[in-house]
């Protein structure tokens, strides 16, 4: 139960402002989700793989992490520490050994991707955004989430966005009613989730469908048949973002589009500061309909 925001920029010149715009949108959704907040930002690709990790004791865990990982991979690793998170840049072909190394070191992997970075923590959205300096981040698109936890714990790992595959992430407003059974079905296929959270199951479902060869559109289409309950999903990929609502479509969702951007939010309030919103096309996504924007 939550607030969702998403912003997909069509105009190159706006990219430096992505973090700033998303932060304002996120903070307006505080009432819908005061427990925790998170954001996924799709920034510049640098020819490296970005691994966002998190630690509750960053000073101890991140000290020398880049050097140790670089040694293990036999290649230099750059690290940017941002509060409780760090973004590690490793060679594109080093994902598996890097993740194995990080798992052994006991740091939590938030997400992996060529352009995606994920930052999420427990706390009020404004505080979370400030801790990570989201305002200063640029990029092509991003999605954010404020959480009012329903059944799973209020922890960093329980915060959204959830990422279960490279450059893919998902945020959710609603409550799935068959996620336990779906979690077991995915586990039988060798896909394991890290939390009790229903949204992570949604993310893992979508990733597994894509891994099996489905397009993102087909995977989102599949949620309508295979996931039960109430959901508005917003999902990000390296090149775009998509939206789907369950057939009952009780949870709020509103979109705005101009020549410069496509925006998504749980409430119109989140759009109030967007440039040109007065003349934007504003509409609500239809139930059981997949929307997708790609750059």
């Amino acid at each position: 139960m939550c607030g969702i925001v998403g912003l997909f920029l069509k105009k190159e010149a706006l990219r430096p402002r992505l973090g700033d715009m998303l932060t304002d949108m996120l903070i307006t959704m505080t009432d819908r989700g005061p427990d925790s907040a998170g954001i996924a930002i799709y920034g510049e690709e640098s020819g490296k793989l970005k691994i966002t990790v998190q630690s509750d004791t960053p000073a101890a865990d991140f000290a020398g992490l880049d050097l140790a990982l670089g040694e293990a991979l036999g290649a230099p690793v750059a690290m940017r520490v941002v509060d409780t998170h760090a973004v590690l840049n490793v060679p594109l072909d080093a994902e598996a050994p890097a993740l194995a190394f990080l798992d052994k070191r006991g740091v939590r992997v938030m997400g992996v991707g060529e352009s995606m970075e994920i930052f999420k923590e427990v706390g009020l959205p404004k505080d979370v955004a400030a801790r990570f300096g989201i305002r200063a981040m640029g990029g092509s698109h991003g999605i954010g989430h404020t959480r009012m936890a329903t059944e799973s714990a209020v922890t960093t790992l329980g915060a959204h966005p959830f990422s279960t595959a490279g450059d893919q992430c998902l945020v959710h407003n609603g409550s799935l009613s068959n996620h336990n059974d779906m979690r077991r079905r995915l586990a039988r296929k060798g896909i394991y989730t890290k939390t009790e959270n229903d949204t992570e199951v949604g993310a893992a479902y979508i990733s597994s469908r894509i891994a099996e060869g489905a397009t993102l559109g087909e995977a989102l289409e599949g949620t309508l048949k295979d996931l039960d309950g109430f959901f508005t999903f917003v999902t990000g990929t390296k090149t775009g973002f998509g939206v789907v609502r369950d057939p009952v479509a009780c949870k709020p969702a509103v979109m705005a589009e101009t020549d410069d951007y496509v925006a998504f939010a749980s409430e119109y309030r989140a759009f109030a500061d967007l440039p040109g919103i007065e003349t934007a096309r504003v509409w609500e996504p239809e139930p059981a309909t997949v929307y997708f924007w790609e750059r």
């Binding site: 009780c250 509103v254 119109y268 504003v282 509409w283 609500e284």
Partner: peptide
Amino acid sequence: TVIVEGDASQ
């Protein structure tokens, strides 16, 4: 009377 110039949500 309530008049909405634009769209109305759910």
